[in-house]
């Protein structure tokens, strides 16, 4: 090092000038509850179990999502469709219980890729916070979309060209 460099003062002033420049830069923070950050179109948040156009559940409880899940967060119990339930479930088999443990889930989206029936999708909704661990096991009541409140997943729907 030269004598000037060994003084360290020029380096210190250089550092000071860098930090003072940041004082006048645009701040990157968002004031969260008032301003919300825009989500990416393919943001992987809370799951949704889709219904088809007639309001029937797509899921047939095939279990591919549970197999694909690296965190083993998904469990389900399958059941056979009874007579008169054709308006509720699209195919003869359906998931009587479908649970995702949101504390285990790592939101990788592999369930979405594994699903052959377009039934499960990750959305841009956030998992709400709770006070106890038990409440993070989301059942069908939390996951299946309501008939009158459809959740739009058209932007993230993958179109595979064969």
């Amino acid at each position: 090092m030269t004598w000037i460099e060994r003084l360290y003062l020029p380096a210190i002033f250089q550092g000071l000038s860098i930090t003072i420049k940041h004082l006048f830069k645009k701040k990157v923070s968002l004031r969260y509850p008032e301003v919300k950050r825009a989500f990416a179109a393919v943001y992987r948040g809370m799951h949704v179990l889709k219904r088809d156009e007639q309001g029937r559940e797509n899921c047939t409880a095939c279990g591919l999502c549970a197999v694909a899940c690296p965190a083993e967060a998904i469990t389900m119990v399958a059941a056979e469709r009874k007579k008169g339930e054709e308006n509720l479930y699209r195919e003869e088999k359906y998931a009587a219980i479908y649970e995702i443990n949101m504390l285990r889930c790592i939101f990788c989206g592999l369930c979405e890729e594994a699903c052959p029936k377009d039934a499960i999708y990750l959305t841009d909704r956030l998992v709400p916070s709770e006070y106890s661990r038990g409440k993070f096991v989301f059942g069908k009541d939390m996951l299946v979309e309501a008939v009158d409140q459809r959740i739009d997943i058209s932007k993230r729907k993958k179109v595979y060209e064969i």
Binding site: T19, H22, L23, K26, K27, V28
Partner: peptide, 13 residues
């Protein structure tokens, strides 16, 4: 506040 501003944040508000 100064810490926040020098780091491009907003600080307590």
């Amino acid at each position: 506040k100064v810490a926040a501003f020098l780091q491009d944040r907003i600080g307590p508000d």
